[in-house]
Simulated assay, not measured.
Amino acid sequence: MPESPPWISSVLCEATSGFLRSTSCIEVHLFGSVMRADSGKLGDVDILVVYEEGSLAFAHVFCNHLRSLTTHPPLDVIALSQKEEIETSFIATVGAKRIWPLL
């Protein structure tokens, strides 16, 4: 699986620094064209936020923050609870790569 373009990491690092530095209730993943060999043809950057049960309010604020960023290509953010992700196997199905917390 290809690495994500470097600018994505820096944008997300800047966007998440205040939100995620002191929490472990969120995982952030990239998926879609940004993670495929055809990433030169980006229409958007697909981001998955997986949150712990009981952290919906925090996840909502974080996702809205990401959506408010002006980037080109734009960010497309979706959120799933850990339970929803397990039930759908979304990460495995789309080949998402976790970018937060860093492995």
Rank of each mutant, 00 (worst) to 15 (best):
M1H: 01
M1S: 02
E3G: 07
P5V: 03
P6Y: 02
P6Q: 09
P6L: 10
P6W: 00
W7F: 13
S9N: 10
S9Y: 12
S10A: 12
V11Q: 12
V11I: 15
L12E: 05
L12H: 07
C13R: 14
C13E: 14
T16N: 10
T16L: 11
T16G: 12
T16V: 08
T16F: 09
F19N: 04
F19I: 02
F19R: 02
F19C: 07
L20G: 10
R21P: 00
S22P: 05
S22V: 09
S22Y: 08
T23S: 06
S24L: 09
S24I: 07
C25M: 03
I26K: 10
I26M: 14
I26L: 13
E27I: 03
H29R: 12
L30Q: 04
L30W: 04
L30I: 06
L30S: 06
F31M: 02
F31P: 01
F31A: 01
G32V: 15
G32R: 15
G32I: 14
S33T: 15
V34S: 06
R36D: 04
G40M: 06
K41V: 05
K41N: 08
L42C: 03
L42E: 02
G43Y: 00
D44Y: 04
V45H: 11
V45A: 10
D46W: 05
D46L: 06
I47A: 13
I47W: 15
I47V: 15
L48N: 02
V49T: 13
Y51Q: 08
Y51D: 10
Y51L: 06
E52C: 13
E53V: 06
G54L: 06
G54D: 04
L56F: 14
L56Y: 14
F58A: 12
F58T: 10
A59Q: 07
H60E: 14
H60S: 15
V61S: 02
V61C: 01
F62N: 05
H65K: 13
L66M: 12
L66P: 09
L66W: 14
L66A: 11
R67K: 15
S68D: 10
T70W: 00
T71A: 12
T71Y: 03
H72I: 05
H72Y: 09
P73Y: 07
L75Y: 11
D76S: 14
D76W: 10
V77A: 09
I78Q: 09
I78K: 11
I78E: 03
A79M: 05
A79V: 01
A79Q: 02
S81C: 07
Q82Y: 03
Q82I: 00
Q82N: 05
E84S: 08
E84F: 03
E84H: 05
E85G: 01
E87I: 00
E87L: 01
E87N: 05
T88P: 01
S89H: 10
F90I: 02
I91C: 03
I91Q: 01
I91D: 00
I91V: 15
A92W: 04
A92T: 05
A92L: 09
V94T: 02
G95K: 14
K97M: 13
R98F: 12
R98I: 03
I99E: 13
I99A: 12
W100S: 09
W100Y: 15
W100K: 02
P101C: 11
L102F: 04
L102H: 09
L102Y: 05
L103K: 13
L103A: 14
